[in-house]
């Protein structure tokens, strides 16, 4: 009996102790965790402040400015509600805005597929082992270093290899096609070098992606008798899908931001438009931004559809 009780006690006692240590540990763990979180926030604080001051606040202001008349008195920004007036002006009254908008959209839509294909081809070529690999890699990356708006507008207007020679067979063929097909083609040829200059970073991202594909996959395919063509479609391309998606987003964003674009120039020119100070530019930038978002959404949708088909 006593022994039994003793046993009970002995059985209970450690239980209590364990419970105590558990809660003790828990609180200790909790404070340690909280301290960890606090320290983390401290590391993060510059970005948080910057995000509020230089991204979120301007973002909200940009929307407000596009709907309000802005006037600035020392130390204060005054807003007066104007509704969709500036959007209406940009869309319906301004003669040049829609033209710039369509030419920018054209550039983005033509350049993105060309850049994606070009960077993949060059990356596959550069992924071979041959003499001068580093040299060519350096050549194709060089435009990234020197690409600024003024340099491009000096160099790439007039000093490029001309593909749009009027009498050439290619041009004759293209102009004979319906304008829906021929316009983008002629436009792409016309700005081909500019478009290609945008693909420096994408080539390297593709190269990094290619190097991640396991060589044993290719070996296995070779044993099964696959040729280079089949290997590309069945192994390389599916494995490169995420890389290509990243490239697509990067391309759309960089070209949309490229400073010599018609729309971007129009926005900065209208910044100090006396009757519609700031507001018109803000409204224009929002129209343009929505367009870019639409393009990004289409890109996302296309990739989603393709990957779904791939899986099925």
């Amino acid at each position: 009996m006593t022994r039994h009780r003793m046993g009970d006690k002995m059985a209970i006692q450690p239980k209590v102790k364990r419970n105590q240590t558990k809660t003790y540990r828990k609180t200790k763990y909790r404070t340690a965790k909280r301290r960890d979180t606090l320290k983390g926030l401290l590391f993060l604080s510059p970005w948080l402040i910057g995000f509020l001051a230089f991204t979120l606040l301007p973002f909200i202001n940009s929307i407000l400015y596009s709907f309000n008349a802005v006037s600035i008195t020392p130390g204060k920004v005054n807003l007066k509600w104007e509704g969709l007036e500036y959007y209406d002006y940009a869309w319906n009254v301004s003669t040049s805005f829609k033209l710039s908008l369509s030419s920018s959209a054209m550039l983005i839509c033509c350049a993105t597929p060309v850049i994606l294909v070009f960077s993949l081809i060059i990356a596959i070529l550069l992924n071979n082992r041959f003499r001068g690999r580093t040299f060519f890699r350096a050549v194709f990356f060089m435009p990234v270093i020197i690409m600024s708006g003024p340099v491009i507008s000096k160099l790439l207007t007039g000093y490029t290899v001309d593909f749009t020679d009027e009498g050439s067979q290619l041009m004759l063929f293209l102009t004979s096609l319906p304008s829906v097909v021929s316009n983008p083609c002629v436009f792409t040829l016309d700005t081909l070098v500019l478009i290609l200059w945008f693909s420096g970073v994408q080539i390297l991202i593709c190269l990094a992606g290619l190097q991640k594909v396991s060589p044993s996959l290719y070996e296995a395919a070779e044993i099964d008798g696959a040729g280079a063509w089949e290997k590309f479609w069945k192994i390389t391309l599916p494995h490169m899908a995420p890389t290509i998606l990243i490239n697509a987003i990067y391309t759309v964003v960089t070209i949309a931001n490229y400073s010599e674009q018609a729309v971007n120039r129009e926005i900065s020119e209208n910044l100090f438009n006396t009757s519609m100070m700031y507001s018109l530019s803000a409204a224009m930038s929002w129209i343009y931004f929505l367009l870019v978002l639409l393009i990004l959404a289409v890109v996302g949708l296309l990739f989603w559809l393709v990957s779904k088909k791939e899986k099925a």
């Binding site: 202001n61 920004v77 964003v253 700031y278 931004f289």
Partner: peptide, 29 residues
């Protein structure tokens, strides 16, 4: 940090937000 994913998404958003949208309000600021 709570909301780590959200912060990463916000970082990505700062990349996607085009400079021309930010140009006007930043100038005023």
């Amino acid at each position: 940090i709570p909301g780590k994913k959200l912060i990463l998404v916000l970082v990505l958003v700062t990349f996607l937000l085009p400079s021309q949208v930010m140009l006007v309000p930043r100038y005023v600021l």
